[in-house]
C-alpha cells in the first residue's frame, strides 16, 4: 500500500464527518427519522402520504448547501472526470443498487454502523468492496 500524503486532508475530513454525524443525530432525535439519502429520495419518488414534506425539505437542504456555503466562502473543488456515459451508467447502478439494499453510504454506512447493525455492516463492507474492486479494474487493469 502506497499512501498519497499530499492528498491526505485529515482535519477537514474529520470535521466534515462530525457535521455529517451531527446532521444524522439531528434527524433521528428531532424528527425520529434515519438520515439515509437513498431511502429519503426513493421515498419521495414513491410519493408517500405524510412523508413528502420532510423528505422534500431534507433533499432541498442538500441542494441548497453549496449556494449558502458560497455566500460565506469559496466552494471546495468538485472534480468530475467521468464521461457522460460513465456517469449515466454509474447513476443507474447506484439508483437500483441502493434501493435493493435499502440504503447507501449514509443510511447503512453512517446511521447503520452508528446503530451497530450487523446488516448495515454487511452492506457497508459489500459496497466498499464493490468500490475498491471497480476502481482497481478501471484504473489498473483497463488503465483508464
Amino acid at each position: 500500500m502506497n499512501i498519497d500524503w499530499n492528498a491526505f486532508t485529515p482535519l477537514s475530513a474529520l470535521a466534515g464527518g462530525l457535521l455529517i454525524g451531527l446532521a444524522s443525530a439531528w434527524l433521528i432525535l428531532m424528527n425520529g427519522r434515519i438520515a439515509g439519502i437513498s431511502g429519503i429520495l426513493g421515498g419521495l419518488l414513491n410519493n408517500e402520504r405524510g412523508h413528502r414534506g420532510w423528505q422534500f425539505a431534507f433533499i432541498l437542504g442538500l441542494l441548497a448547501g453549496p449556494a449558502i456555503w458560497g455566500i460565506f466562502h469559496a466552494l471546495p473543488a468538485i472534480e468530475i472526470r467521468a464521461s457522460y456515459p460513465a456517469l449515466i451508467a454509474a447513476g443507474l447502478l447506484v439508483g437500483i443498487g441502493t434501493r435493493y439494499a435499502a440504503g447507501c453510504t449514509s443510511g447503512h454506512g453512517v446511521c447503520g454502523l452508528s446503530r451497530l447493525s450487523p446488516r448495515s455492516l454487511a452492506a457497508t463492507m459489500t459496497f466498499m468492496f464493490g468500490g475498491f474492486a471497480t476502481v482497481y479494474v478501471v484504473r489498473h487493469l483497463l488503465g483508464a
Binding site: 429520495l41 433533499i59 435499502a102 453510504t105 449514509s106 454487511a122 464493490g130 468500490g131 474492486a133
Partner: peptide
Amino acid sequence: RLLLGSLVFGIGWGLAGFCPGPGIVATG
C-alpha cells in the same frame, strides 16, 4: 437483496466516485 444491491451500488460508486448524497450536493 441486501448483498447484491450493495455490490451493484458499490460498482456504480467506483465508476464515477458519486454516491447519492454527494451527487445531489454537487448538483446543487
